[in-house]
Amino acid sequence: MNLIMKRRSFRTLTAFLSVLIIGLQAAEAQNEINVLKLKSAKDLQAFFKYTGNDVLLIAGHRGGMVNGFPENSIATFENTLKHTPAFFEIDPRLTKDSVMVLMHDATLDRTTTGKGKLSDYTYAQLKDIRLKDAEGNVTDFAIPTLSEVIEWGRGKTILNLDHKDVPLQMTADLIRKHKADNFVMMTVHHPDEALFYLKNNKNSVFSAFIKTKKEFEDYQKAGVPFTQMIAYIGPHVKPDNKELYALLNNAGAMCMISAASSYDKLKTAEERRAAYQAIARDGASIIESDYPIELADAVKDFVKKDTPKQKFFKKAPIKK
Rank of each mutant, 00 (worst) to 15 (best):
P292Q: 10
A251L: 11
F87V: 04
A280N: 06
I21D: 05
L161F: 02
T145I: 01
N203G: 01
P292N: 12
I210W: 05
I286N: 05
T227M: 10
A222Y: 11
F206N: 00
I58L: 02
D128A: 14
A172V: 01
S289E: 02
A278Q: 14
R11M: 13
L126D: 07
L195P: 12
N241L: 10
F226R: 03
M254R: 13
S258M: 15
F88L: 00
F183R: 11
I4W: 12
E217S: 07
V55G: 02
F47N: 01
F87D: 03
I158C: 01
K39D: 09
K238W: 00
E32A: 03
P191C: 08
L57K: 14
A251Q: 12
K314S: 11
T157P: 06
K242D: 14
K221D: 07
K96P: 02
V101Q: 08
I22D: 04
I4F: 13
A316W: 07
V303N: 11
P235V: 11
V149G: 04
F183P: 11
K320W: 07
S98L: 11
E217A: 06
K305V: 15
Q125H: 12
S262V: 03
V184W: 10
G116Y: 12
M256H: 09
R8P: 00
H104Q: 06
G283D: 04
S261P: 11
T12D: 02
E270Y: 01
T139K: 13
P70G: 02
A278K: 12
H104D: 06
R8G: 01
A284I: 08
L159V: 05
T145F: 00
D181V: 01
I293P: 08
K305Q: 15
E78N: 08
S289K: 01
A246S: 06
F47K: 02
P167E: 03
N241T: 03
D97E: 12
Y219F: 11
A142M: 01
G223V: 04
L81R: 04
A259Q: 13
K37H: 13
S98E: 15
A231V: 05
A284F: 09
F216M: 07
S204L: 01
I175M: 07
